[in-house]
Amino acid sequence: MGEINHFEYGWITPALSYALSVLGSALGLVCAGRIRTATSAGQRAWWGLLAAWALGGTAIWAMHFMAMLGFAVGGTRIRYDVPLTAASTAIAVAAVGIGLAIVGTGRLAAPRLIAGGFFTGAGVAAMHYTGMAAMRLDGSLGYDPLRVTLSVVIAIVAATVALWLAMTVRRGIAIAASALVMGIAVNGMHFTGMSALSVHLHESRGPASGTEVSGLLVPIVLAVVFGVVGLVYALLAAPSDDDRAGAAYVSARLDEAPQTVAAEPAPDPVGLRARSTLAQPGAQFPSRRSIDRPS
């Protein structure tokens, strides 16, 4: 049996994986908040897609990949099947997107939340074990059924809580606190699933297939960076609730302005109208007595 090391590079990979999960969770919660305030089906679909990428692509899948950088098995090198790795990404994003669609349409109720959480959690677990199946090494993988079941339960519970937070949490400290909790849940599910793994090395070593981690690192890092930058840009470019409220207030004040001016004209200083007649040919200069005389 091969010796498994989940922290080949010490605390760096788990710290980075947690940071990615928190960042993705925070962006996903903000995007999910825009779903609730969207005024059209197209806007809801757009923000749902961005939230699915933030939660599924960054908070879950990118976290999984970062944690796997610290995974090593003594006596064998680890490679990855690229199509299967890409499929695990698609599974994570699709699972979160469908879960958001379930809870985001209509009034949030317990049956919708449970159904969305179950589907999303099962999808997250499928992503994890698909990513594990993408590993290529000189050995066979085995799993402890009890710990696998526990990891799936954690995924479903965490997904249900995440969807509830996505539909209820709105801004500020609540989003930050929720992202920290979601980061713990995502990492807890990952390392629980990893603890179920055992590797039985083969006596005869065949030719290694797949791609080294170094070959996947650059494109994945670029995808994550551009994805995060795109999410931040989309959030900054789109008007927030406060922006819309401010625009509505200004528009209402502008609509009321002509009526206010007509109803309450500005007072005319004494003699100002009289002095303005001097510019007319043949006009007489008004005296103080004529100005003060009541009409």
Score class of each variant (00 low, 15 high):
Q43L: 06
N187Q: 06
L150S: 10
F119G: 11
A115L: 08
T85Y: 03
H64G: 01
A19M: 10
L29T: 07
V161A: 09
G97E: 06
L236W: 10
V153K: 10
L222P: 02
A176I: 08
T76N: 11
A41G: 15
L216G: 03
R205I: 14
S178I: 03
F119D: 05
A110E: 04
R205F: 08
W46P: 00
V232P: 01
V22Q: 10
V225N: 04
L20C: 10
S151R: 00
V82N: 05
S140M: 03
L197Q: 05
L100M: 07
G42T: 04
A174W: 11
S88L: 00
A134L: 04
N187S: 10
L254S: 05
I291P: 06
A176V: 12
A185W: 14
I220G: 07
I175A: 01
A185M: 13
A279E: 07
W61D: 01
Y9C: 09
H200Q: 12
A90D: 02
A133H: 03
L27E: 03
G117I: 10
H6P: 09
E212K: 02
S209C: 09
S290H: 12
A279R: 12
L50K: 08
G193L: 01
A72L: 01
A126W: 06
L217F: 14
V232L: 08
S295K: 12
G106S: 05
L146F: 14
P267T: 02
R273A: 13
G70S: 03
A52P: 00
G104V: 04
A67K: 02
L180Q: 06
V103D: 11
A19E: 13
P269E: 05
S251L: 11
H190Q: 07
V181Y: 10
S251D: 12
Q280P: 02
P111N: 07
A162R: 04
G210N: 02
Y9G: 06
A159L: 15
G74Y: 15
I98D: 08
G121W: 07
L146M: 07
S295E: 12
G117D: 10
G172D: 07
Y80I: 01
Y18C: 03
S151L: 01
V228L: 08
R44Y: 11
A266T: 13
G28N: 10
A238I: 00
A158H: 11
A32R: 03
M68G: 00
A159C: 15
I98C: 07
I114Q: 03
D243S: 10
A109S: 13
F71Q: 03
I154P: 04
I91W: 08
L113T: 06
P269N: 05
F7Q: 00
M182T: 11
L150E: 15
G230D: 05
L20Y: 09
I78R: 00
L180C: 09
